[in-house]
Structure formats: C-alpha cells, structure tokens
Simulated assay, not measured.
Amino acid sequence: MKPTPILIAATGILVLGAVSVAAQQHEHAPMPTDDRQQLDFPEPMRKHMLMNMRSHFEALGDILAALGEGDGPKASRVARERLGLESPAAAACVKPAKRTGSEEDHMTHMASMMSQVMPEEMRAIGYAMHESASDFAAEAAKMQPGGDPKPALKALAKVTENCAACHSAYRLR
C-alpha cells in the first residue's frame, strides 16, 4: 500500500505532538542536585589544579598504553614520575608538617599555596591517590615482558578509585 499525503501528514503531526509532550515533560523534570563541596580557589590555583588533573588523566592513559604493550617497567616509570608520592604533582597533597626542608625546596610556590587552602579531606584523598600510584609503580615494575598484567591492573584500580572519590566529593567553581 502506497502512503497517501493524508497518512504522511497525520504521521508527522503525531511525531511532532510526541516530541512536544516529551519536551514539556523534560522542562518540568527536577534537575539532579550536585551535592559535592564546591571549592572556591583563587583563579591561578584553580587553573593549576585543573592542569594537574588533566596531567594525571594523561598519565593514566600512558600507563594503560604501556600495560597494553606488555611493558610493565614503562608503566611503572610513568606512574612513579608523574603520579607517585615522589612526583611533583604530589607536592600539594603532602601535609606541610610532614615536609622536610629539602622537600619544601622542591615544591613549587603554587603547590605550597594549594596545600594550605585545600580541604584536609581532599588532601587526604589526593595523598591516597599518589600513594596508590607509588604502590602501582612497584607492582608494575615486577611485570615481565608479556607477563600477567592482572596484579598491576588491580593496583591501578586503587589509583582510579581515589580519583573517583575526590571527583565525587569536590568540584571547582
């Protein structure tokens, strides 16, 4: 049976009506609330923190690529140098009271300022992320070429769990 112009027009009207009803229902649907703690860092600190988080994300990508190639030592090196406790990225998450003079000398001015304004709970999650990255680096270093990546991946999951915990609790303004 060939569609007639009336059938085509009626179908069009029904589709438009359904879209209109759906749009009206969507307009009245309650917006989900964002219960995360909003952080109002000064703009230079905000930019620095966002840059650090993007760098962390890129490091995770490089780690996964290395693991995908079966190169545990490379994944370990990336984690140690870019995410671990000894990396420059960890500086803001180390409590000022725990730093030695030489550690303070290696901190950037921005990381030092951030460590003073970052909420204590956020710093603790950040420290746990950097600590788990160091643990991952140790596990990945054990991986032989073509070896089983499961222990390293299990350790890497703890890194991303900490990332998710922080992003679930805090947001930057």
Rank of each mutant, 00 (worst) to 15 (best):
H56N: 15
A157T: 07
R99T: 11
G68E: 04
A10N: 00
Y127F: 14
E69Q: 15
D71H: 09
M45G: 06
H28N: 07
H109G: 09
I13E: 00
Q144L: 10
L156Q: 04
R46Q: 11
H56E: 12
F57L: 11
E131H: 15
L16A: 14
T33W: 01
C166S: 07
S55T: 08
Q37R: 09
L60G: 08
A133H: 14
S168L: 06
S112C: 03
P149H: 09
E131Q: 15
V78Y: 03
C166A: 05
M31A: 10
S132L: 06
A29R: 15
V15Q: 00
D105T: 15
D71S: 13
G147I: 07
E58Q: 10
T100S: 15
V94F: 02
A141L: 13
A89S: 15
R99D: 00
R123M: 15
H56I: 12
K98V: 04
A22D: 00
N162I: 03
L7C: 00
S132A: 15
E120T: 14
A65R: 13
L85E: 04
L85W: 02
M1G: 12
A59C: 08
K95H: 11
K150V: 12
A9N: 01
H48D: 11
M113I: 11
E43H: 09
G68K: 12
